[in-house]
């Protein structure tokens, strides 16, 4: 017998990435991620029709990105994809199949994490691209427009990595992690990011916003108190925090005993 010819993390990733797209949850999120695209298209049509000022769609694009994507869609997608990595296995009582094969729990978690991360990132990335095309239709030849897209996409990737790792750890630790996650996203992150001084650095959104091409006061939408941190520091913090959360998720998952009920 030819044993261990392929990395188990890759096998789990490939299998769950494929089957994940069949899940009802993913279909709902595909629709959800199209909302900004529809709004962007509407803005574009209104601008063309003269109902909006010229170049208003570019400004609208930045707002759509910030408010709908970075403050809503990315955290929510990361929350549902991340927290269900372990919780769905518990709810469906399927964890037993992945923990009675000769594969480490670390490989199981990382495989499932990568599948969920890539699914969520693809949903966001596709929406981003469509929004960008709608907003920058007249300036697709400009390098600045593509640079702007690259910054948004890069930041989205980091944001998704960090948030999903956090919610994976939360899901590995507790069963009701979605509720806690919602409180974190819409409570802690929404409020504390506007606190002056160092306090806002205790949110993930602070580091994300520090990377976005929106200056304090500019754009004007609820960002007037942002005191951005340097870009490189923000990248390192987001990468570091994501790695720490992921390590924590693995640490918990390897040691925790999951009770699938009916323990007769």
């Amino acid at each position: 017998m030819n044993m261990q010819t392929q990395n188990p993390t890759r096998i789990i990733f490939a299998s769950f990435f494929k089957s994940g797209f069949k899940a009802k949850r993913t279909r709902v999120f595909i629709l959800l991620s199209l909302i900004p695209v529809v709004l962007m298209l509407a803005a574009r049509v209104m601008e063309t029709a003269g109902s909006l000022a010229a170049d208003a769609s570019a400004d609208f694009f930045a707002k759509v990105m910030l408010v709908l994507y970075f403050q809503l869609l990315i955290p929510v997608l990361a929350l549902f994809f991340g927290s269900t990595i372990v919780n769905e296995e518990l709810d469906n009582k399927t964890l037993v199949y992945l923990t009675t094969v000769p594969v480490s729990r670390r490989a199981v978690l990382l495989g499932k994490y990568l599948a969920a991360f890539l699914q969520a990132t693809l949903l966001v990335g596709a929406g981003f691209l469509l929004c960008f095309l709608a907003a920058a239709l007249t300036r697709l030849g400009e390098a600045a427009a593509w640079e702007e897209l690259a910054v948004f996409l890069g930041t989205a990737l980091l944001a998704m990595f960090c948030y999903s790792a956090l919610f994976t750890a939360a899901g590995a630790f507790m069963k009701k992690s979605v509720l806690i996650g919602l409180f974190f996203v819409f409570g802690w992150e929404s409020v504390v990011q506007y606190f002056p001084g160092i306090t806002q650095k205790f949110t993930i959104i602070h580091w994300i916003k520090s990377l976005l091409p929106v200056l304090p006061g500019e754009g004007g939408f609820l960002i007037f108190q942002l005191q951005p941190s340097p870009a490189m520091e923000s990248v390192l913090i987001l990468l570091g925090a994501g790695c720490v959360f992921l390590f924590l998720a693995v640490f918990i998952f390897e040691r925790k005993e999951y009770i699938l009920s009916d323990n007769a």
């Binding site: 899940a23 199949y97 923990t99």
Partner: peptide, 22 residues
């Protein structure tokens, strides 16, 4: 936590569970 043992062990759980989308 000893995953290597499962080369030698087979376990059929009581729960009616499986990956239904597969």
């Amino acid at each position: 936590g000893n995953h290597r043992l499962f080369r030698r062990i087979g376990f059929c759980p009581e729960h009616d569970s499986a990956y239904m989308e597969m």
